[in-house]
């Protein structure tokens, strides 16, 4: 496995391998010197076409803890806004000898283009592309879920996970549905019908328009960010109505499993999709998600640059071996 473009690039074995590797690497984080020499001399480029401080510094910290050289390339403006073309940017990175390119881009499929167009040799890691996918977010969410619900080992078999919000525009939801299903979880997606993608019946999840019907005994509720501007385009009438029907408040939170957790990929709209008291509740693991982001990304860099063992290579992904 050379690239990580989609959560579907990971089969069961390779997903478990990433999570187990992340768990081992998390021990490094507890040391006084948080550094391993593994990627010494390798170059990791953070190529961010969209502002995303939290994802960028997470990848930066991950690469640095593995002793890689990190170049932050903040490409203001893409081809869409008549900046430098993706191709020219890729050729520049190739000339610099990038071993891995972590790309965040507003266009769905931009990482796929980078991996398949022949402009660059390095590994491509999708750090969020348009409304397509965000596979490392799904990995850190899976890691967090496993940590809290399964003692940090094994998979998520039988766990009931409810994902709520703007699924249509959410790359986090796409990657999570795929990965959590791969790990055996029972995933339910809840959204107003206007924010459910066409063809969701082909996804490995259940779909519901009624949040209250899905909460009893859930092991985790993952709230997605909902942009207030969506109401301008008639996805829902008002932010108040959205909050009433799909927001996670204290009453709803109390209906999930006693050991159940609340997640959010951030940044949150407090008062919109989640109330402040729930966001700050004890069983809200939103801060853990950030911490786990670093170790999971260390594992991805380690495995992609160090080489995945053959038995976990997914046939859908071209191997460089």
């Amino acid at each position: 496995m050379k690239h990580l473009l989609s959560a579907s690039d990971l089969n069961y074995n390779s997903a478990i391998r990433v999570l187990d590797t992340a768990r081992e690497l998390s021990l490094v984080t507890d040391r006084p010197v948080k550094k391993l020499p593994t990627l010494r001399g390798r170059t990791v480029v953070n190529l961010f076409f969209e502002d995303s401080t939290r994802t960028r510094i997470s990848f930066e910290a991950a690469a640095k803890r593995l002793s890689a050289d990190v170049i932050n390339f903040s490409a203001k403006g893409s081809s869409l806004s008549k900046g430098e073309s993706l191709k020219d940017t890729a050729l520049t990175l190739q000339a610099m000898g990038a071993d891995a390119v972590v790309i965040r881009h507003g266009s769905s499929g931009a990482p796929h283009r980078l991996a398949s167009a022949g402009w660059i040799d390095g590994s491509i890691i999708n750090a969020g592309d348009g409304t397509h996918e965000h596979p490392t977010q799904a990995l850190l969410d899976a890691y967090t879920l496993r940590d809290h619900l399964n003692g940090g080992v094994g998979d998520l078999a039988g766990k009931r996970i409810v994902i709520v919000g703007d699924v249509l525009h959410s790359r986090v939801a796409r990657s999570n549905v795929i990965l959590l299903a791969t790990l055996g979880a029972q995933v339910t997606v809840v959204a107003p019908p206007t924010l459910v993608p066409v063809g969701i019946e082909t996804w490995p999840c259940k779909v519901s328009y009624d949040l209250d019907a899905e909460l009893d005994g859930a092991d985790a509720v993952m709230m997605l960010r909902v942009q207030g501007e969506r109401m301008i385009h008639s996805y829902f009438p008002t932010t108040r109505e959205y909050s009433r029907r799909y927001g996670l408040n204290r009453q709803r939170f109390e209906r999930i499993s006693e050991s159940g957790i609340v997640m959010h990929p951030g940044p949150m709209n407090r008062g919109m999709e989640i109330t402040a008291d729930v966001a700050d509740a004890e069983r809200s693991v939103i801060v853990d998600q950030v911490t786990n982001g670093v170790t999971v990304r260390m594992a991805v860099l380690y495995l992609l640059l160090g080489g995945f063992p053959d038995d976990s290579v997914d046939s859908a992904v071209e191997s460089d071996q």
């Binding site: 790359r171 063809g199 969701i200 019946e201 082909t202």
Partner: peptide, 15 residues
């Protein structure tokens, strides 16, 4: 084309 694939690829559909 708006289809299950457009939903999966995250590309806006043309119904």
């Amino acid at each position: 084309n708006e289809s299950p694939l457009s939903g999966q690829l995250g590309l806006t559909g043309w119904p």
